[in-house]
């Protein structure tokens, strides 16, 4: 059995990649993808721990998996709403550059 540490390390790498993406990309689409990456990195960590937990015979072994399903569902909903917003913005401004979307400031 692969040790949990490897999964977690992979999760950390994915999370960092996603984070770097969020900080560096200006296209809203790419931002979205990066955020999805981060979410799934977190999912990976959760399932990894859940697997370790069930192997140890813990009582609530399936809690982790359940949480991942919730995250997936939320991510799907988020994409649906987010992409809708994006399309609306693109129709208005023919651009999805988030740096140009800075009117909402104090």
């Amino acid at each position: 059995m692969v040790q949990t540490e490897y999964y977690v390390a992979l999760s950390a790498v994915l999370f960092a990649l996603g984070g770097i993406g969020v900080l560096t990309r200006r296209s809203a689409i790419m931002l979205f993808l990066s955020i999805e990456l981060m979410l799934n990195a977190a999912n990976l960590a959760i399932v990894a721990y859940a697997r370790q937990w069930s192997a140890a015979g813990a009582q609530h072994a399936l809690d982790g998996q359940a949480a991942v399903f919730i995250v997936l569902a939320i991510a799907a909903a988020e994409v649906a709403v987010g992409l809708g917003i994006l399309v609306a913005i693109f129709r208005n401004r023919v651009s999805t550059d988030v740096d140009e979307l800075s009117e909402v400031r104090a």
Binding site: L31, D99, E103, R105
Partner: peptide, 10 residues
Amino acid sequence: QSGYVRAYAF
């Protein structure tokens, strides 16, 4: 509160 999403993220 600059309005730059990436600044918030940072």
